[in-house]
Design a binder for these strands. Structure first.
Lengths: 243, 243
DNA sequence: TCAAAAGTGTTCTGTTTACACCCATGG
DNA sequence: CCATGGGTGTAAACAGAACACTTTTGA
């Protein structure tokens, strides 16, 4: 039941008449794309090449079409820029300040995406002006985009402590050191190696492979893979990765 | 930067022309209003009195006007129904399935609100067909409103464990028993009285008053009040109310 | 005097933190 | 043979969970 206009006289039994009185607005999606490249958590930005705010950095975005829902719009926008599909995305928040976009009244729904930069899946970015920024070196962005990124980082932090979304940022096979570096980047603090490994092993959601990664050291380090079945069989509520 | 139509030829320097190509949609807000009345966590629903879906239960909602942002729209909608102002509200999620509202393509941004039912502030509901339902007795609702409530309950559960939003559901002065009942309702589990009180006292965010509430027992029970200064001085990150 | 709710501490268990040395290997 | 990162365990501190009896007072 919509009661937006209960003060005014109107025929609420006439659905179309009712709906047609209402204001329509532009709905955009903006994507915070996080990537992890072995050491650093980064976010993908593009340089705006038209007025207003020309030459300022910005998140990628696009407008919702009537033929799609918001998730589909976010997936489409991400795909246009990166060429990637089947990427983890999650709706973050909707931004609606009246003057947020000086061009026209626009409400934006922010999404964040997690992609693995080390993987060969991700060979190129399709927009020339795009650049990866370390998350603590993000420049001033247009509109409310800095606010969006701040909120996305906070959400990522909380999520990564209770859900296995961190693996979306790693290659399929990864070392313990990579996993630890990832969590150190996300949480922005150093972690103790032994405590970290003990905790991860306790969760029992990884397969230790026979392969070693020989690029990082002379000894080589074992590779691990996230085992989704193991994870699902453990808990409905995610893990409690208090680190 | 909006790249919704990069495949098509267009003059991106002409802002208006650019924006005007895009689809406009109706934006609604729907409010999940939680209330706590000494024992039970409840949600406020209204009976829809027009077709389609006449006589079905629904959340309250309304359409966004161009002159307001989403928070303001949610506050307005809440005020129309309850007459209340200065209520805790938080944006929850946006719902955008193409057929979610058979009347017209509508995207809805869900908000949840927390109000104290025991307070005399809340003397009456302004819509006759409104009714409080226990959160585990919610009937089938129109559209995706059941989904919204489920998500709101989950969010409330997580929030209440780390932020002092539970106090929004209580009168200014409350007993420990009331606070415990509230958390038991939110978390849907029985808690141990001694452990609960020990933990709350450890947080050191309440003032114990000299007054007693004499209505609940012959002995009477001390009243407490949330002390926001104490809370703010403790932590930036909220508390860790693992109970 | 008793019914009904308030109030109060201790022990046990599990989790988190702090911490340092040997291993394997390629150069 | 040594420099580099990989791998491993234990003890102390802390937080959570389990648990039962006494107090007050209006009816």
């Amino acid at each position: 039941m919509k009661i937006g206009n209960t003060d005014q006289h109107e025929d609420v039994n006439s659905k179309l008449q009712y709906y047609n009185k209402e204001d329509q607005v532009l709905l955009a999606v903006d994507c915070i794309i996080f990537g992890f490249d072995e050491k650093e958590l980064k976010v993908l930005l593009v340089k705006r090449d038209f007025e207003p705010e020309k030459d300022k950095w910005s998140l990628i975005g696009g407008f919702l079409k009537k033929s799609e829902n918001l998730d589909q719009a976010a997936i489409r926008v991400l795909n246009i820029l990166t060429g990637l599909k089947d990427i983890y995305m999650e709706q973050l928040h909707s931004y609606s300040e009246i003057d947020r976009d000086p061009g026209q009244r626009t409400i934006s729904v922010a999404y964040f995406a997690l992609i693995d930069l080390s993987s060969k899946n991700f060979d190129r970015i399709k927009i020339d002006s795009a650049k990866w920024y370390k998350i603590n070196k993000v420049p001033q962005l247009i509109f409310d985009h800095n606010e969006m990124i701040d909120k996305a980082i906070q959400r990522l932090r909380r999520r990564a402590l209770i859900k296995p979304i961190g693996f979306e940022l790693l290659p399929e096979k990864f070392t313990m050191r990579q996993l630890q570096s990832l969590y150190e980047s996300i949480l922005d603090k150093k972690l103790d190696k032994r405590n970290f490994i003990n905790k991860v092993n306790l969760l029992d959601i990884l397969d230790k492979l026979d392969e070693k990664d020989m690029t990082s050291s002379r000894k080589g380090s074992f590779l691990y893979r996230f085992n989704e079945e193991k994870y699902n069989s453990k808990s409905e509520e995610g893990f409690n990765f208090k680190i």
